[in-house]
Nucleic acid binder design. Structure first.
Lengths: 156, 156
DNA sequence: TGAACAATAGTGTGTTGGTATCATTTTTCT
DNA sequence: AGAAAAATGATACCAACACACTATTGTTCA
């Protein structure tokens, strides 16, 4: 039930774009490098997201990608459905044993967990991911700032 | 996150044994046929469960398998860990992006869902599965009983 | 001696992550 | 205007892995 690497790549790339100024076009190389994604593979992923109107692309020498929708309207669930559709929507957790109508003891509680999972992905947006990444980055920067003077103090 | 076919087979076979009289020995063929499991594959599965002391086997011409522990002490979680250990215990759902210490926005809620999932499997025992199967079977039998006289009625 | 389990090696297929190639579009330089 | 360069688009391919399953050869015991 964990998300695939491909979905992770897609979410990261979208979050990167969400972190840029709106409708700014970013090149594939730029995204791939800062997010550590194999560029050729990323092209495939972004192509798929473009086909589903999650993002726009412009060709030509200064081409690249930009979000086609506001980042707080794009959910992780949607991205995952595009890149790695999950076939087990309401199948029984134990397999052939029981059908939808005639569930086993696990069925009810399993459905609930499954619903919580879907809801988590549906309520998490690219905008949230981007914000949390930005926060983490600024924490890291502040931590660096704090270390430098301490080293100075030790030296005096 | 759904359980593998192999785990399903294992659980079904154990539930079958739990449905027999205690310490009764059942042959591989018998289990495989009634549970619709490829017999040669089932042998591998039961061998694994035997190695982990979930069940006992006796060789020789009237050999077979029987539970090594009371069925209400064997959990689905345990069976699954033996047959298809889940490696993603507390990894981040989005992959490389964040570590255990430095989680993304999804992290907290995901951990909770994950815990609910593990708890579901840990609190579901082979005995429960066997009981629910027995109940379903007796429902089916009663339904049949009800149908037979109705057919007779139509004929008269 | 024959019917059952034990162990281990092997097989086939599907998915996933990733690559290579060729075509198309657009800017820019001459 | 025209050619070259730089970017995406599309498609086919590839390698590694996991999962479900098989085959074979050996061992035990009524």
């Amino acid at each position: 039930m964990i998300l695939s690497k491909t979905t992770g790549y897609g979410v990261m790339a979208l979050a990167y774009l969400a972190g840029q100024e709106a409708s700014m076009v970013c090149g594939l190389q730029e995204i791939a490098e800062t997010e550590c994604i194999p560029p050729i593979y990323l092209r495939k992923i972004l192509g798929e997201l473009r086909r589903h109107r999650i993002l726009r692309s412009t060709k030509g020498i200064h081409g690249g990608y930009s979000l086609a929708r506001l980042p707080d309207t794009i959910t992780v669930w949607e991205v995952n459905q595009i890149l790695a559709p999950d076939p087990y929507l309401d199948e029984c957790i134990l397999g052939a044993g029981c059908t939808k109508a005639d569930g086993c003891v696990l069925h009810g509680r399993w459905q609930r967990i499954r619903r919580d999972y879907v809801e988590l992905l549906e309520t998490t947006t690219i905008a949230q991911i981007a914000r949390s990444r930005q926060m983490r980055r600024s924490f890291a920067r502040r931590a660096e700032d704090r270390i430098v003077p301490e080293e100075d103090e030790e030296q005096r």
